[in-house]
Each structure stands twice: as C-alpha cells, then as structure tokens.
Amino acid sequence: MSTAAPEAVAGARTGLAGALVVPATIFVAIGLLGPIAILFRYSLNQFIPGQFMVDGLTIENYVKFFTDPYYINVLVRTVRVAVICTLACLIMGFPLAYVIARTQSRFKNLLVMLIVLPLFVGNAVRAAGWMTVFGNRGAFNASLMGLGLIDQPIEIMFTETAVLIGIIAVNLPFMVLTLQSVIEGIPRNVEEAAFSLGAGPSAMFRRVLWPLALPGILAGTILTFILAMNAYATPVLLGGPKFQMMGPLVYGQFAQQNNWPFGGAISFILMTATILLTVAAHLIVQRRYR
C-alpha cells in the first residue's frame, strides 16, 4: 500500500553504516584478494631446482602445464569427473529436494538434519565410509561374493568409479539443500494450476517446475561443480596416488616439490577453468531458457 520506497530511517547516518560494514569488507578484501594477487605474482616467478624460487616475469609455468600431456590429462580428467558428478547430483538431488520441499510431515526437520549432518561431518570421514564399502573384503564385494554372484572381488578402490561415487555423495547434500529452498519458494498452487489445465506430471515438470526452479538449479549446479573441480580428500583417499586430479596436484607441488611458482600456476589454472566453465554453463542455460 505504501507508495514510499524503503528508506533509511530518519536519523540513520551513513557514517554509522560505514563503520559497520568497513571492518568486514577490509578483512575479506585483504584476506582474499591480496593473497590471490600474490599467488598470481608467484606463478610468474621461476623455479630453479636447488635454488628454490627466483624472482622473474615469465609465463613458462603456464607453458609447462599446457605442453605436458600429463598435466593436460589431469585437467581433462578433473573436468570430466566434475561434469559427471554435477549431472548425477542434479538428477539424484531433484526428487529428494522436491519431496522435502513439499512434505507436510512432521519429520521434515529430521530429513533436513539427516542431509546437513553428512555435510558437517567432513569429506575425510565420508571417504572412510566408502573405503569400508569398496575394499576387496569390504561390504560391497563381501555381499556379492556371499550371494555367489562373483568369485573374485571387483576392483573398485582406487578407480575413477570410486572417486565419482565419493564426490557425488559429498556434493549431493549441497545440491539438495539449494534446490529445496528454491522449490519451497514456488507456490504449490502453480503446480495445481498446471494440472487443472490438463498438464500431466511430466509436462508440469517441464513447463512449470523446471523453469521456475531454474535459478536454484543453476546455483546448485555451480556450487557442486566448483566443489567437484576442487575435490581433494575424496580423490586422494578413494583414487589413490595414481589417480591424479587438480586439487592433489596443486598440493603436491607445494608440499612435496616445493615448486611454488608452478603450484601457483596450476592453482590459477584450476580457478580460471572453474570460473570459465561456470560462466559458460550459465550462458548456455540463459540462452536456452530466457
């Protein structure tokens, strides 16, 4: 009813607002942007074995990454894993998010807590769970052998499959929670309106629910994709030393090789690839649905 735009209460001074917001802003700006700038500077330095890091202004670290098939392979594998995991999370996450968003049950809060709990427990613990399942004498192989379906244990530990399953399970809660909050914002009666106009469940989903949930789908997809691209604990524990992804590769350069310039460059490539692919996905989705 009010015609007035929301307005600062008379007496609220901008000086006060500044005093409130400036400390956090300075802290994040210095703590986030400063380090990234220094990292970028490091990535242009030279690394000479035995001499450690030498100040320079060279792109040789980037050249080294993109000319060595080994590193390119790691990047391609990382992107592949991230894309598969993100799609799987979307497909697996939507039904669960929908059910939680629409349930009238008094157990709704319990359901949400069951999804948040694994998120809070951390990646290493969850990887430990999968290690218990996947081992040669783990729950999976033991069950199949007990049922007489296989004679020899199937190798799952230290394969891409194990890593995919691990990352999907790690990221799924993020997707579910993001989608759930968006679906809850979509009034139930637009679905009912679609049904009353003759749309079946699949037409309703395609024409009404999906387009309305798109902002959440996009947000959830971006979040899970970023997390998958940068996974560390899961590939290390479930993929083993031979299954290299970008996250462990960066850590190795810093912690084991002490090659900061090259590690910095890989870190930057990882960040840039993540951002570029995220933006690309954003644009494709926008073009298709706007």
Binding site: V21, A24, T25, V28, A29, G31, L32, G34, P35, I36, I38, L39, Y42, I222, L223, I226, L227, M229, N230, Y232, M246, G247, V250, Y251, F254, W260, G263, G264, S267, F268, L270, M271, T274
Partner: peptide
C-alpha cells in the same frame, strides 16, 4: 559489490584459498 565480496570466500575453492593464503 560489498555483498558479493563478502560472500566470495564461500565459492572460492579451498585449494585456491589455501595456496594463496599460504603465499600471503
């Protein structure tokens, strides 16, 4: 812009945050 900046660490990959804070 301030709002975006304050939320940025949330989407910043842990590996990138770790390496950059290390050198910082």
């Amino acid at each position: 812009a301030v709002n975006t900046l304050l939320l940025l660490p949330l989407v910043m990959p842990g590996i990138v945050l770790g390496t950059s804070l290390y050198v910082f």
